[in-house]
């Protein structure tokens, strides 16, 4: 019997809006996909792009990045800075041929528990259809193949 593929989703969320929104989803007893592991950050401005790369490298199949709506940042402008960074990072990933559909960017406020639940469900479903993220693993394999091939030809 083949089991359904369950993706690992890592969510990078800001403390003030999305984390509170996810908390609201919990206290409201909203049911949503259990595939998500939430990592709480002080602000979306703190979410470095290298953290996303490391999540993928360590086996995440999909990522959610979420924070306060524009103009709602606890620190006034953290999400505006983050937005610019995401625009640039996303276009860099796309230029390198990385599947940017595996990263969901969103604004979820502390009052939007239902939006959060829907976002997690929708992302989980999308990644489930895409299957496991294997691009990085294949890269590592290609390195080893290259090494062994070189060793043989020597």
């Amino acid at each position: 019997m083949s089991e359904q593929f369950e993706p690992k989703i890592v969510a990078f969320v800001c403390n003030w809006c999305t984390y509170a929104g996810a908390d609201l989803a919990g206290t409201s007893r909203t049911k949503y996909a259990t595939n998500v592991s939430i990592i709480r950050f002080p602000c979306t401005g703190r979410i470095d792009f290298m953290l996303l790369m490391k999540a993928f490298e360590n086996g995440a199949d999909g990522i959610i990045v979420s924070g306060c709506h524009p103009n709602d940042c606890h620190y006034t402008s953290g999400n505006f800075h983050a937005r610019r960074r995401w625009i640039v990072f996303r276009s860099l990933l796309d230029f390198m041929g990385f599947d940017t559909d595996r990263i969901t960017f969103s604004w979820v406020s502390a009052a939007e528990g239902a939006k959060w639940a829907g976002l997690v469900d929708e992302t989980t479903q999308r990644i489930r259809e895409k299957g496991a993220f294997t691009d990085f693993k294949k890269l590592d394999c290609s390195t080893f193949e290259k090494i062994s091939h070189d060793a043989i030809t020597e």
Binding site: P70, N71, S77, F80, H81, R83, R84, R85, W86, I87, V88, R90, T100, T104, F105, S106, W107, L119
Partner: peptide, 29 residues
Amino acid sequence: EFGSKTGFSCNSGYALNTFKPEDKEQFIK
């Protein structure tokens, strides 16, 4: 996206060090 050119002006600063509230994107849900 942001209309800034690098190495064009001594006072231009750095595109990712600043922001405009009206910056546009289509991918943030």
